[in-house]
């Protein structure tokens, strides 16, 4: 036992505890921006890799369905083929109406993706604008926008869609766009809330005050400093909502109030397959799997993004 330990004055051997210069800059690693850091983290996550490959594949299928099937999805439906099983050139078999199921599933991708993406873009534009203005400027603007958001928030998505789609205008002009408008109208408050919260968290940060006091205008500080730092939760929510909106489109189409019959949609296929559920459940299963995989890929991407963009995972 070292005598100086229990009593008196102990000094560690200097050669073992050499003094380092105070506060030196560590330069061995390459500089990393927030996004580069998130990207580096994402790249290694299996969830992200799998979901991106799935999404890229889905987008490719939506853009070029002809690559996968030459059979037109709608015409050439022969009642003789009703509920027939798979055979050469028709891997999924036929629907109750005698249409080629594989072709319908492939062509259904387009409606789901376009409704999802367009609706998310609309929700982003409305929600981020309102949310950012309300959160940043506060005051009466915040109060008015908050009440407006509350009103739309109190109208649940499917219920609201039921009412809106009963309107003559929407009934007569059924299209992909009406579904997009209905979803955007009812879903923006959620995005506005998230944006508002994120903006409020950033707006009082010292770097915003610093920018203001070096002469950056109030709006300039919002655009240059506040918004970029408030984007992470917005991006995550947008990705997750893409999945949710695809479900919504399918649900509305399933209920008969979504895209028109002339547009291929998995929701229609599933609704039409109800009659065949006991005789040939695969007619129901194929479009269901397609829909679920599509939604799953976006939910997984959102989940991976949430982990990567979480500021808590970035502490030094």
């Amino acid at each position: 036992m070292k005598p100086e330990r229990t009593e008196g004055h102990y000094v560690a051997p200097l050669e073992e505890t050499a003094l380092e210069a105070t506060d030196t800059l560590r330069v061995e690693e390459a500089p990393l921006s927030l996004w580069a850091d998130a990207w580096r983290k994402l790249r290694r996550r299996p969830l992200f890799i799998v979901s991106s490959i799935m999404i890229l594949a889905l987008i490719f299928i939506a853009l070029f369905p002809g690559v996968f099937t030459q059979v037109p999805p709608n015409n050439e439906c022969l009642l003789a083929n009703s509920e027939a099983g798979p055979r050469e050139g028709h891997p999924f078999g036929f629907t109750f109406q005698g249409c080629d199921l594989f072709s319908r599933v492939i062509h259904g991708t387009q409606a789901s993706l376009s409704v999802g993406i367009l609706a998310v873009l609309c929700v982003l534009v409305i929600g981020v604008t309102f949310g950012a203005l309300a959160g940043y400027y506060g005051g009466w603007l915040d109060a008015v926008l908050a009440r407006l958001g509350d009103i739309f928030f109190a109208l649940p998505l499917i219920l609201g869609a039921l009412v809106i789609t009963q309107l003559p205008f929407f009934r007569e002009n059924k299209s992909v766009w009406t579904v997009v408008v209905v979803i955007a109208m009812l879903a923006w408050p959620q995005m506005a809330r998230i944006t508002r919260g994120a903006v409020i968290e950033v707006r009082n940060a010292d770097f915003v005050t610093a920018a203001r006091s070096l002469g950056v205008s109030r709006f300039g500080a919002l655009m240059r400093h506040v918004l970029p730092n408030a984007l992470a939760p917005v991006i995550v929510l947008a990705t997750l909502e893409l999945g949710v909106f695809i479900v919504t489109e399918a649900t509305l189409s399933f209920l008969g109030i979504g895209v028109p019959e002339s547009v291929m949609s998995w929701g229609h296929d599933i609704a039409a397959a109800q009659v065949s559920i006991r005789t040939n459940p695969m007619i129901l299963i194929y479009p269901s799997i397609a829909l679920s995989l599509c939604v799953l890929s976006f939910i997984m991407l959102g989940d991976a993004l949430r982990d990567a963009l979480d500021p808590k995972s970035r502490e030094r």
């Binding site: 921006s33 010292d206 770097f207 610093a210 006091s213 070096l214 002469g215 950056v216 400093h225 970029p228």
Partner: peptide, 30 residues
């Protein structure tokens, strides 16, 4: 002519800006 320096060294720099952009911002603004 009057500039601030704040308390929290973690909060006073925009995490999205690299050091060059941070120091250049006042010059660009003016």
């Amino acid at each position: 002519r009057v500039q601030p320096i704040f308390q929290d060294p973690y909060g006073s720099l925009d995490p999205m800006y690299n050091i060059y952009r941070t120091i250049e911002e006042p010059l660009r603004t003016h």
